[in-house]
Nucleic acid binder design. Structure first.
Length: 209
DNA sequence: AAGATTGTCAACCGCATCCGT
DNA sequence: TACGGATGCGGTTGACAATCT
C-alpha cells in the first residue's frame, strides 16, 4: 500500500543510479527487484530496475552494431518464431530482446512495407533452406532407422524360428517408437515431409498474422 | 543556415504467467 | 483452489541524433 503511493522516478537513468544498481546486483544477485529498488537506495520501481539491468548494465552484454551474421540469425529465427523476441534473443548471446526488437522494427518492418516483394522473396529463400535442412535431417534419420531395423532383423533371424514367429507381433509392438518411420516407403516419406513443411508454413503464417 | 523528416534506441505500459501462501 | 505479488514479455512512446530539403 505504502509502496504504491511512493513517487517513482522516471526517465533516463543517471550514472549514479547505474552504479548503485550495479553494486547492489553484484552483491546480492539478480531477482527480488522490489527490494533491490528499496535497498539500493533508488527511487525506481522494480520493473525499471530490472529493465535497466537486463538491457544495459548486465556485464555479459555485447555492445556495438548487429553483425551480418547476427542479422541472418534474427531473420531466420523471426521467420520461425515471429515476434517472440526473448526467444530469439536467447540464440544471440549478449543481445537483448529489446535490442533485437528495435533492430527488426527499424531495419525490416519498414523495408517490408516499402518493398514487400523483397520481403516475400527473402522469406521464401529462408523457407527453402529450412526445408532442405529438414529433408537432410529426415534422410539421416531414415538411414539410421534402416540400420537399426537391419540389426533387429539379424537378431530375430538368429533366434529360434519357432519362438521368433510366435513372438514376432509382440516384438514389433515393443519396438521403440523411433523405429516406426522406417516402415514407410520413400513416397510416403516425401508426403510426410511435405505435410510437415505445410504445417510449418501455416504456423509461420499464423505467427506473423 | 534552419526547419522538416527520418532513424535509433532507452524506457514505459499493460497484460500474461509464474510462484508462494 | 484461489489470491496477490513478482517477474517476464511484447507493443509503444518519446527524446535525441542524423539526414534531407
Amino acid at each position: 500500500m505504502e509502496e504504491s503511493m511512493r513517487f517513482w522516478r522516471k526517465g533516463p537513468w543517471t550514472t549514479e543510479e547505474d552504479s548503485l544498481l550495479t553494486e547492489h546486483v553484484k552483491l546480492h544477485g539478480e531477482g527480488r527487484w522490489n527490494s533491490v529498488a528499496r535497498l539500493a537506495g533508488l527511487k525506481r520501481n522494480a520493473k525499471s530496475c530490472r529493465l535497466r539491468w537486463v538491457n544495459y548494465l548486465r556485464p555479459d552484454l555485447k555492445r556495438g552494431k548487429i553483425t551480418p551474421h547476427e542479422e541472418k540469425i534474427i531473420l531466420d529465427l523471426h521467420t520461425r518464431w515471429g515476434n517472440r523476441w526473448s526467444t530469439i534473443a536467447r540464440s544471440l548471446p549478449g543481445r537483448t530482446d529489446n535490442e533485437i526488437k528495435n533492430y527488426w522494427r527499424t531495419h525490416f518492418k519498414k523495408k517490408g512495407k516499402l518493398n514487400s516483394d523483397d520481403s516475400v522473396k527473402l522469406k521464401a529463400r529462408l523457407l527453402k533452406r529450412q526445408k532442405f535442412q529438414q529433408e537432410q535431417r529426415n534422410q539421416i534419420q531414415l538411414q539410421k532407422n534402416k540400420e537399426d531395423m537391419e540389426k533387429v532383423l539379424l537378431l530375430l533371424e538368429e533366434s529360434n524360428s519357432k519362438v521368433a514367429s510366435r513372438h514376432q507381433d509382440m516384438v514389433h509392438e515393443e519396438m521403440p517408437s523411433v523405429l516406426y518411420p522406417m516402415t514407410f516407403n520413400d513416397s510416403q516419406h516425401v508426403v510426410e515431409t511435405n505435410s510437415m513443411y505445410d504445417d510449418f508454413v501455416l504456423w509461420d503464417g499464423l505467427w506473423n498474422f
